[in-house]
Amino acid sequence: MSTPLLQLTGVTKTFGGIHALSGMVCEVPEGKIVGVIGPNGAGKTTLFNTITGAYRADAGEVKLKGVDVTQWPSYRIVREGIARTFQNIRLFGSMTVWEHLLVAQPHSESAWRRLLPIAWANPAAQERAEEVMAFFGLTELRDRPAKSLPYGIQRKVEMARAVTARPKLLLLDEPVAGMNHDEAEEIRSLMIRLRDTGLTILLIEHDMNFVMRLCDYLYVLDFGVLIAEGKPEEVRANPVVLDAYLGKDD
């Protein structure tokens, strides 16, 4: 088997004696949509924060395409190919949609050209932003301050911003939280289209129906421990999962 895109071995994160994550092991193969589920406080967001370098893992390794990125600062991890969104949307308050799509693009140009107006110095960045804007259906909203937009659209802007960084792996933290059915369906089809362009997606989600119909593979966390994994139908039938999560939840 080829090296998985993302590989975690024994990743552990503690906060003053509380094991937010202990001995996490998982693999994300290229070109798949993989889900992480679990009850509140199970360590899902901690997992994302540890992968992206927002937290330093206390033990274990995070490897992207075989490269150990565990102790890297977050900006280097992003440039290596992991982009993310946030559970509580974190857009930039002073920027328009258009500016969000420019700011996160990888630096291909020289430092001096980055000091010049984008319109003169970097038409390629503008083309890329146009492209992503059209893909996400945001073209009409180009000059709107991103934070003034409805919640569902803000989530799309955040996803689009992450995509402009040209990641290999996209981490989505509850991409459909607080959305109605139609909005969630739109995000689902966007994610499938993104996967079809070759992007690999790892997502955290509470909405079980959503996850079951979308993901190729699932990991189930509870109290920071991996309690189950498998294809959606296997996880759905697993009594441990039902106990920990589904049974109580519904």
Partner: peptide, 29 residues
């Protein structure tokens, strides 16, 4: 005023608005 239309300025704005998020989208804050 020209700098204000540049990539560098967008990065500065990002650090101004949300430093943590700026780092997590790949900017060296």
């Amino acid at each position: 005023m020209l700098l204000e239309r540049s990539r560098v300025w967008l990065e500065m704005q990002a650090v101004h608005d949300d430093e943590t998020a700026a780092g997590l989208i790949g900017l060296n804050t």
